[in-house]
Amino acid sequence: MGKVALITGASGALGRAIAERLSAEGYDVALHYRAKEEEAKQLARELEAKGKGRAVPVQADIRRANEVDRMVQETEQALGPITLLVNNAGLVRDRSLHKLSDEDWDVVLDTNLRGAFRLCRAVSPGMRDRQQGCIVSISSIVGAMGNFGQANYAASKAGLIGLTKSLAKELARDRITVNAICPGFMDTPMVRAVPEAVQEKLVAQIPLGRFGEPSAVGEAVAYLAGPGGAWVTGQVLHVNGGMYM
């Protein structure tokens, strides 16, 4: 059986890094996007041009269960059974508590946490039948330590950690590993859009003295999905330059 990865939020900086690393490992990759169709198609073209494996863009709003199920079916029709799910899709709606609306809360939790739950539910039956599979969810340092103005985002990312630990216990009997990665502040367009003075304050809190490269997250996913991670499940891997220990 081939190696097939479904990566949600693949058109973003971390998603791209994960897709590039897995493609280099010989995975056929399904690149999920919600609205950024051209970015996903361009990434697919770039990956296939390198000749390591197939790459296909797949669209879905992961807040909708029927679209998640459709995307999983389309992925497996195009590439074969999914052996690795990477829950990377996420968004922010930053507000302090007194400004945080029900809509701000719901859209972040629905995407970052409920979407991941639906994807796990959709891919796990096939993995159970085959007695093989790997699920990696991209949480955040914010889910572990909290952050001002990000109660909704922190709750969603902390929820991913709880989901990971629970599913690891449920699915271990079927030889499915379930782990989470908590990136710290990475060198991405989102972080670089923050005012320079704020960036300097963030870097000052990182013992290694710099923002992380997105490729570090790709390497972490490849480890958990590879032979080295075969006996690792229910764990949270912090990739944060020592900012949170």
Results as ranks from 00 to 15, higher is better:
M1K: 06
G2S: 12
V4T: 14
A5H: 07
A5F: 14
A5K: 05
A13R: 00
R16C: 05
A17H: 05
I18E: 09
E20I: 08
Y27E: 04
Y27G: 07
K36M: 07
E37A: 15
E38V: 10
E38M: 11
E39I: 01
K41M: 12
L43H: 03
E46D: 14
G51V: 14
K52G: 01
G53P: 06
G53N: 06
D61C: 13
D61K: 10
I62L: 15
I62M: 15
R63Q: 15
R64G: 01
A65D: 14
Q73A: 15
L79N: 07
G80P: 04
N88T: 09
A89I: 07
G90Y: 09
R95M: 09
S96I: 14
S96N: 09
H98I: 10
D102M: 08
D104V: 06
V107N: 05
V107L: 15
N112R: 03
A116P: 03
R118Q: 15
C120M: 15
A122Q: 12
S124K: 09
R130W: 04
Q132V: 02
G133H: 11
G133D: 09
C134V: 11
C134P: 02
I138S: 04
S139A: 15
S140G: 07
M145H: 02
G146F: 04
N147D: 11
Q150A: 07
Q150F: 02
Q150I: 02
N152I: 06
N152Y: 08
A154W: 00
A158R: 03
A158N: 04
G162K: 01
S166C: 08
L167E: 05
R175T: 03
I176F: 13
T177S: 15
N179D: 09
M186Y: 03
M190Q: 06
E196W: 00
Q199G: 06
E200H: 03
E200L: 01
P207Q: 10
G209C: 10
E213S: 12
S215Y: 01
S215T: 07
G218M: 04
V221M: 10
A222H: 03
Y223L: 14
L224N: 02
A225D: 04
V232P: 00
V232M: 06
T233A: 11
V236T: 14
L237R: 04
G241C: 12
Y244A: 12
